[in-house]
Structures are given as C-alpha cells and as structure tokens.
C-alpha cells in the first residue's frame, strides 16, 4: 500500500511515495538515490545502515519509512563532522568502505551520547572517552575487514 512521506535528508526536504513496507533504508537507497547508508544484513545485525534519525543513531533497515513522516535524517554524506573523516583517514579506519558510512554516523551519535553522560555496559562511575568505552559503544557496527583498531583510535582522537 502506498503512502507519501516528507523527510529531511542531509538538510534537504524530500517528498517520496513509499510502500508501507518500505524501510527507511530502502526509501533512501531505492527511491531517493541516497546511497551513503548501506545494506549489510537488513535485519539490525551489522550497523551498516546507521543514520542519525532526529539526532539519534538508529538502524534505518528496521525503521519503516511510513512511520517517520516529518523526520530529519542525517547520513554519512551530510554528516557535519569533518574531524571524524580526518581521523578516520589518518588512522586508516576503513578498508573496503562498505561499513564506513554506518561507522561514521554511529561514531557521531555515540560521541553525543557520551557527552550527555549516558553509561555503557563497561562504564564504572562516569563514562570517559576510553578505548574500552569506544569498543563497547561501537560493537553494533561490524567491520569484516577488521579495521576496529583504527576505528577506535580515530574516534578517540576526534572526540578529544
């Protein structure tokens, strides 16, 4: 069944017809040609599709587009954080690049969460920008190339 939604994607307002079944990820990739978010598993198990939805990092493959009429979506293409891009490049925090847009959005969201004082499973007292905090908080973004060491270093550098 068709529905029409209007969402802001990377600062640009877009109106698009979707099937009620269309996920936010597929709306972006198939209907709006916004291909920065990637489809790695389509079931919330890899993090490649991570975007910022109304300011928070979420998995766009598990969000129905129709349920997010009026939302603001930021993808890696529109992410206003060149510092993260710089530290990712410096630390060679990616190889094939397929998980990378999701890693970047997740990193940006996670740094905001840390700044807000949110705890994680490894927090003891108040959270800090330690390697173990970053590792735990980024555990939802799989990287099969194995760039984790660089990813952690890049986020730590960008977050300072």
């Amino acid at each position: 069944m068709e529905a029409t939604i209007t969402i802001t994607v990377d600062g640009r307002q877009r109106t698009v017809a979707v099937d009620t079944r269309t996920t936010l990820l597929d709306a972006l990739r198939d209907r709006l040609a916004v291909t920065a978010p990637k489809k790695g598993c389509d079931h919330g198990q890899c993090g490649s599709c991570t975007v910022l939805l109304d300011g928070r990092r979420v998995l766009s493959c598990l969000a129905l587009a129709v349920a997010h009429d009026g939302a603001e979506v930021v993808t890696a293409a529109g992410l206003d954080n060149d510092r993260l891009r710089e530290t990712f490049l410096d630390n060679d925090a990616f190889q094939c690049g397929y998980c990378t847009p999701g890693q970047l959005c997740s990193a940006a969201g996670m740094l905001d969460e840390l700044k807000a004082g949110w705890p994680s499973a490894v927090t003891d007292g108040e959270p800090t920008l330690s390697a173990s905090e970053i590792r735990e908080r980024m555990a939802g973004n799989l990287c099969r190339c194995g760039a984790y060491v660089g990813i952690v270093a890049a986020i730590q550098e960008a977050g300072r």
């Binding site: 979420v58 998995l59 996670m110 705890p119």
Partner: peptide, 12 residues
C-alpha cells in the same frame, strides 16, 4: 538494558 543489543537498537 546496556547488556542488550547495540547503541543503535537501544535508541529505537
């Protein structure tokens, strides 16, 4: 709660 899922999933 923090032992479950991932940061993105917990936000949803």
């Amino acid at each position: 709660l923090l032992a479950g899922a991932s940061g993105q999933l917990r936000n949803m």
